[in-house]
Amino acid sequence: MRRSRAAVWGIGLGGAALTAACLLLAIAAGVSIGEMPIPMETIFGTLTNRLGLTTLRLPRIQEAIIWDYRLSRSLVAAVCGAGLALCGAILQALLRNPLAEPYVLGISAGASTGAVGIMLLGLGSGAVSLSAGAFAGALVAFAFVVFLSSGRQTADRTILAGVAASQLFNALTSYIVSTSANAEQARNVMFWLLGSFAGVRWPDLALSASVVTACFLVCIWHARALDAFTFGEDAARSLGIAVQRIRIVLLVITALMTATLVSMVGTIGFVGLVIPHAARFVVGHGHIRLLPTCALVGALFMVLADIVSRVAVAPQSLPVGVVTALVGVPFFSIILYRARRST
């Protein structure tokens, strides 16, 4: 039995609305939970106050914590989750590799080398130059992986190239840190590398949200072309897809998103791996539905991961990369296991 198109769209939009509602609740929970628990009504009161809708009298400190720390932090977490999940979905489609994502392919490692280089070698300063350095690093890592895995492009070769890239760029990062940082800097860099939303503020949200939104729109524009890659590049070409141009555009987009996010919150692995696979279970393979789903679910996942990272060993907080890896690695193992059975 086949459902009508209207019914399919109805179910899809209903699901999207539900996920979006969950995301809003998760963000609210993320703002509420912390060293100082803040009740929901204070949170909404602060929001309406700041947006100029109300003039409620609220505890000053709580209002400041909500607005200056937790809300921006939760929103950046959402944007990061959306962006990293998108990167994974795009890379998996383009490289036709179920294990592809920025972290596994060493793109994140390249970006962190670039960012650390800027940070410690003092080449410029500020969020934008940090992102630019990360972008350069991500592109170099990409070029390295594409070069190593060129020719007969099999899943194994791409992943091996990614392993080599990760090793190389992590080594370079360690080299830069150990030769040019003092103990305090080294500690900060190492913590940042594992992924943390602790330092993010509103300007970070502005930058990351605009980059991820723009990239998302470009990806949606190419959603149908990504579907055509299902049976490889020649098949896509024979369906009228400009394979070379789309590959370059989307790889640069992925590098740009990865670089922006890594330079802000460090390397957070496995989100790009887990989310697209989970999303495919729900909405199938078509990218016009898959990409928005990835963005929404990725955002939700990361906001929750951020909450877990703060409450798991409270009052201390875990690097969020630790949380995503603890979820991601078992998932990665399942995919590997299934791939072993199907060949």
């Binding site: 149908r224 072309a225 055509a228 299902t230 049976f231 490889g232 098949a235 009228g240 199938g284 393979h285």
Partner: peptide, 21 residues
Amino acid sequence: EQHALTEAHVTVLDVVSLGRT
């Protein structure tokens, strides 16, 4: 082609619909 391969979880309908690309 000789041998179309994919690891994607696609249905017959998905594949045939690609022809409309």
